[in-house]
């Protein structure tokens, strides 16, 4: 099982790497599809919890793939999944950063950006929708999600405080 799972992780995540325009959040729906729906490596709730862990931890939240890899195939899984998701996009970035100067003032550059942004926005909203459905199974949970979103949009409070408060509400047994 393990080697097969490693190969699967490497393949799925290196494809994700090359389409993750905007970062981890935009490929959240596809990660969910692959991990929960296609391979059934874990439940939706477990997926949401690993994602929460990666968001609460310092560092880029793409590290959720390390946790997924680790859960699926131990420490080898963590290394393979992390490398798979990072190496292709880094190589691409490296290559493009070398030739980008030449296109600095090209007119199509702004249009490419204008065209990719709406797709990124749609993907981020889809990610929010799907992770909410995975994480929340009671109305207080939906309320926490809504209040967190509103507070993050309206204030400059660090999200860790909100995570702490939400954790306490959970600990009190209300979620």
């Amino acid at each position: 099982m393990s080697e097969e799972a490693l190969a699967q992780l490497a393949m799925d995540f290196s494809v994700l790497s090359l389409i993750a325009v905007g970062g981890a959040i935009t490929v959240l729906p596809e990660m969910h599809r692959s991990v929960v729906e296609v391979h059934a490596w874990m439940s939706g709730a477990q997926f949401a919890e690993l994602f929460a862990l990666a968001q609460a931890a310092p560092g880029p939240n793409i590290l959720v793939v390390s946790l997924i890899g680790w859960k699926v195939a131990g420490s080898a899984g963590a290394v393979v999944a992390t490398a798979a998701v990072c190496v292709p996009s880094c190589v691409l970035t490296f290559a493009v950063s070398r030739i980008w100067q030449r296109f600095r003032s090209a007119r199509w550059r702004a249009s490419v950006e204008d065209g990719l942004v709406p797709v990124t926005v749609g993907l981020m909203l889809a990610g929010g929708y799907l992770i909410t459905l995975s994480a929340d199974h009671s109305w207080p949970a939906f309320a926490i999600t809504a209040v967190t979103a509103a507070v993050v949009l309206k204030t400059r409070i660090h999200p860790l405080w909100l995570f702490g408060a939400a954790g306490l509400i959970g600990l009190a047994g209300w979620v």
Partner: peptide
């Protein structure tokens, strides 16, 4: 129980990021 609370908040953070991006000037 703790994690049920935290993952609900983490989901809220993603929703907020999506909405923020949706209302930014980068989206024509």
């Amino acid at each position: 129980a703790l994690f049920r609370g935290i993952s609900a908040a983490a989901a809220g953070l993603v929703v907020a990021m999506g909405l923020k991006m949706a209302t930014s000037r980068r989206l024509r």
